[in-house]
Amino acid sequence: MDEIYFHIWQKTLYGSPKLLMHILKNFNFDPKAAWRNFDPKITTGTKKETLELIQKNREEDPIKSYEELKKLGIKILTITSPLYPEYLKNISAPPVAIYYRGDLKVLQKPAIAIVGTRKISFYGQKTVRKIVNELSGYDLALVSGLAYGIDAFAHKESLKIGIPNIAVLANGLDQIYPSEHIDLAKEIIKNGLLISESPPRTPSQKFMFPIRNRLIAGLAQAVIVAEAPERSGALITAEYAFSENRLVYAVPGDIDSYRHVGCHNLIKSQKAVLLTHAKDVVKDLNLAFGSLPIKCKKLSKEQELILRIIEKRSPAHLSSLEAITRIPQCNLIEELMEMELSCLIKNIGGMNYVCVR
C-alpha cells in the first residue's frame, strides 16, 4: 500500500526531492497519511504553483495511477524498503522513490561511475576501455547515464566483459533517451538495472539532468571523469560526488586540448585525484577480486595474426605488417585501431607497434 502513495508523491514532486523529503518527514514517512492530511503550512516558502500542483494531484486516484505503472512493467523502490541502498539514503537529498527495471541485486554491489563528455574522442575511448578492462573480474557494478559519448561507451565496454550496469535516466522509464540507445538499455536491463527518479511519461527535461547526475554520484562509491571539457555536465556529477564525500578521480589529457580542461581543473582544485590506472580505485575501495568471471573479447583471425607478428617482431612497423599479412592498408589500420582501443597493442610512434599485454 505504501508504494501506491510513494508513487503519487513522487509523480507530483519528482523535481523537488528536498521538498518531498521535508513533507514526508513531517508524517514519519507515512506517504498515505501525508497524502490525505497534507497541510500547506508545513511547506513555508514553497512556490504557489507547487502547492497548487499538490492540491490538484490529490484529486487523482492513487490506485489507478499505480496500476498504470504496473502495466508498463516498471517497479518502484522506496526509501523505507530494506533493499534501498544505505549509501544512497545518506546523501543530502536522497530520492524518496526510484523507478526501476531490472535486478535490484546490483544495488548491493560496490559501484563505480564513469562519466564524461558526449563528444568522445579516440583518446577518450582508449581511456575508458583501459579502465574498464582493468576492472574486469572485480565484484562491482558500473554506473553511468546512458548518454552519448563516454556514458554509452563505458556501458558497452563493461557489458562486454561481464560487469553489471546501472544506467540512470533523467526521463521516465517508459521511454529511452537518446532513442538510439534502446538496444543498449535492453542489454543493461538483462545484466543490471535501469533507474530514474522521473515517473513514467515524463519527457527529458533540461532541469532533470543535474538531478540525475546527483543520483549517479549517490549510487557510486567512486566517480571517474574520463574526459570532460570546461562546461561538461560530468563536472556536475563530480561536484555532487565531492560534496557527498565520494572518491573522485579525473583522467589527465593533452594540456592544449579543450577536451580535457574540465578534468585538469578538477585535479588542480584538488576535488579529484589524478587517475592513470584503475588499480588505484580498486585499492582505495578495497574491492574483492574473483567474484565475477573474466570475459575476454574474441579476436578476429586477422587480429590474431597481427598480434602474433607484433609479438615476434616488436616493434613492428605498419609497412611490415601490411607485407606479411597482405591485409589492405585501410583495413589493417582499422584492425590496429581496434586492437589499440582494446589495450592489446600500442603505437609507440611512427606507426611502430608493440604488445602491451
Rank of each mutant, 00 (worst) to 15 (best):
M1A: 11
E3L: 04
W9F: 09
L13K: 07
S16K: 09
K18T: 08
K18G: 06
L20P: 00
I23V: 10
T44S: 14
T46N: 04
K48A: 04
T50Q: 07
R58C: 05
E59N: 10
K71H: 01
S81M: 12
S81T: 11
L88D: 07
P94C: 10
Y99W: 05
A111P: 00
A113C: 04
I114Y: 04
V115Q: 02
R118H: 08
K130D: 11
I131Y: 10
G137P: 01
G145I: 05
A147I: 02
H155G: 07
I166S: 00
A167N: 09
D174L: 01
I188K: 03
L194Y: 10
S196F: 02
Q205N: 06
P210A: 12
G218E: 03
Q221D: 13
V223D: 01
A226C: 14
E227C: 09
G233Q: 07
G233E: 08
L235T: 09
A238Q: 03
E239T: 14
D254T: 08
I255W: 00
H260K: 08
G262F: 09
C263P: 03
L266E: 07
L275E: 10
K279C: 03
A288D: 11
S291H: 15
K297S: 14
L307C: 08
K312L: 12
E322Q: 13
E322N: 09
I324R: 02
E338H: 06
M339H: 03
C343F: 12
L344I: 05
Y353E: 01
R357M: 12
